[in-house]
Nucleic acid binder design. Structure first.
Length: 445
RNA sequence: GUGGCUAUGGUGUAGUGGUAACACAGCAGAUUGUGGUUCUGUUAUCGAGGGUUCAAUUCCCUCUAGUCACCCCA
């Protein structure tokens, strides 16, 4: 056994929880990205790219030191200059840091931004869950009006619906710093004499984070949770008004939603409106594709002025899995107008320049100049779904002509080499006008 | 982090205590100027390490990875 091979198999490989996005699946990612970008544009959100690396402190403060994400799952390290840094486990803290640092409070509020990028969590990998995973997220910073909540939820809903998914919004309000303590008290009170019926985890949760008792999966706990007091009944007047207004607006926007008192987000900074977008898979189980909420305390917590904000984040791998599962019809993949085939040493030499001319003439071109045979080249042209093949051989070179082959009909014509760009454009245009060919060609995943 | 299951070429799958079969894809050729046909050849020391055995890809153990459930989350 050669030691080389052994090395290749044991150490040069994908790190656990990481994933290559291969050329063959890029079209799905492009599809999602382009839809996200176009919806963002329609709703007036501008793209922001923040660094993957931030001070660890940022996430400790923003996401919460006690959360699993920060306490157990963060990729943290000390760099050469002694700074304590972390790979971002989520997008919001970086965006808010940028908002404060670049004085965006001087722009018209709310400042609406979105991001698309990788996030990192050292979690146990599972279906649709990686250690490096992609999220896209939207943040509207600087306005507390419930219409902002409704609009961003509607947008969230529309993005996923535009992607062809059958989804539903699960919504709740978790109050604010005024009313939540009262609710916690009531909740603790309710569970006080029921401790013996709770599972081991829940008895711990009772002390640490009573909200989490509500979404325990153990049957006995679930039954108790059904009867437990609900946050919505404990909302203070302001929070209650805010929430009911959001719901009214959502009705107005015809967004399908379900009230779900168990939507308690995992991050510490949320206040008031919280939601998740869920999709039911074959066995009727709901999987969250992402979630969001209002976070009116975060900007101040990170050292800015008191500034209300709201946002959401969606997991791209999960969305892409759903798209694959549902065989959503994607728009046509990139397709070359012409494929340049060459025969003979001289023709091959001339092809380089001709290729550039075709490109500059506004055509999408493809080639495999390393191939010699015309058969091979036609086969590849066919695989690449080229509309036309230009054939340049010794004969054409001498005559100053070139062959245009229509790959659908197989018809070939000889044209003047100098007029080739014009000739191709002419044929493409007439093809577009032909109604019988106007039917959109689409490709399933 | 805990537990169950799995691991065969690039991909999807057969199979056996005596070193592997098929399909697709890839490459080369039949055909050095014609594709979406055909034919031929070629592409794996059966995840890694150890043990039992005359002999292990097959049985056992460990590790690694994947997967599912829990936890958590996107």
């Amino acid at each position: 056994m050669s030691p080389k091979k052994k090395t290749a198999k044991t150490s040069i490989r994908l790190v656990k929880g990481m994933k290559d996005i291969l050329p063959t699946e890029q079209h799905i990612w492009d599809f999602v990205r382009s839809r996200v970008e176009s919806v963002a544009r329609d709703y007036g959100f501008m793209r922001i790219d923040t660094p993957i690396v931030e001070f660890t402190q940022l996430f400790k403060k923003a996401t919460g030191e006690e959360t699993d994400i920060v306490s157990k799952e963060m990729y943290s390290f000390v760099d050469q200059s002694g700074d304590r840094l972390s790979l971002r486990p989520e997008g919001t803290p970086g965006v808010i840091r940028a908002y404060i640092e670049h004085g965006m409070l001087n722009q018209p509020q709310p400042v609406k931004m979105f991001y698309i990028g990788p996030q990192f969590r050292h979690d146990k990998p599972q279906a649709g869950r990686y250690r490096q995973f992609w999220q896209f997220g939207f943040e509207a910073v600087g306005d507390a009006d419930p219409i902002v909540d409704a609009q961003i939820i509607a947008m969230n809903y529309n993005i996923l619906r535009d992607l062809g998914l059958d989804i539903e919004v699960q919504i709740n309000s978790i109050g604010d710093k005024h009313c939540r303590p009262k609710y916690f008290k009531a909740l603790t009170q309710y569970y006080k004499n029921k401790k013996k019926d709770l599972c081991v985890d829940c008895t711990k949760r009772l002390l640490k984070n009573p909200l989490r008792l509500l979404d325990c999966k153990v049957k006995g706990c679930q039954e108790l949770a059904e009867e437990a007091p609900q946050m919505v009944d404990y909302l203070c007047e302001d929070c209650n008004k805010h929430f009911t207004t959001v719901l009214e607006y959502l009705d107005e926007a015809e967004v399908k939603y379900n009230l779900n008192p168990k939507i308690v987000r995992g991050l510490d900074y949320y206040t008031r409106t919280t939601w998740e977008i869920v999709e039911s898979n074959q066995d009727g189980k709901l999987q969250a594709l992402g979630g969001g909420g209002r976070y009116d305390e975060l900007v101040k917590l990170l050292g800015g002025r008191e500034t209300p904000a709201i946002g959401f984040a969606m997991g791209m791998e999960r969305i892409i899995n759903k798209i694959k599962e549902k065989e959503v019809v994607l728009p046509e993949v990139w397709r070359p107008d012409v494929y340049l085939a060459q025969l003979g040493i001289e023709a091959r030499r001339k092809s380089l320049k001709l290729f550039m001319d075709l490109r500059q003439g506004g055509l999408t071109v493809s080639e495999d100049f390393s191939k010699n045979g015309l058969k091979d080249q036609l086969e590849l042209a066919n695989k690449k779904n080229a509309r036309y093949v230009l054939i340049l051989g010794q004969k054409e070179l001498v005559d100053g002509t070139i062959l245009i082959r229509d790959m659908e009909s197989g018809v070939q014509e000889t044209v003047d080499h100098k007029k080739v760009v014009k000739e191709v454009h002419k044929r493409l245009a007439s093809k577009m006008n032909d109604k019988s060919l106007k039917i959109k060609t689409t490709k399933k995943v």
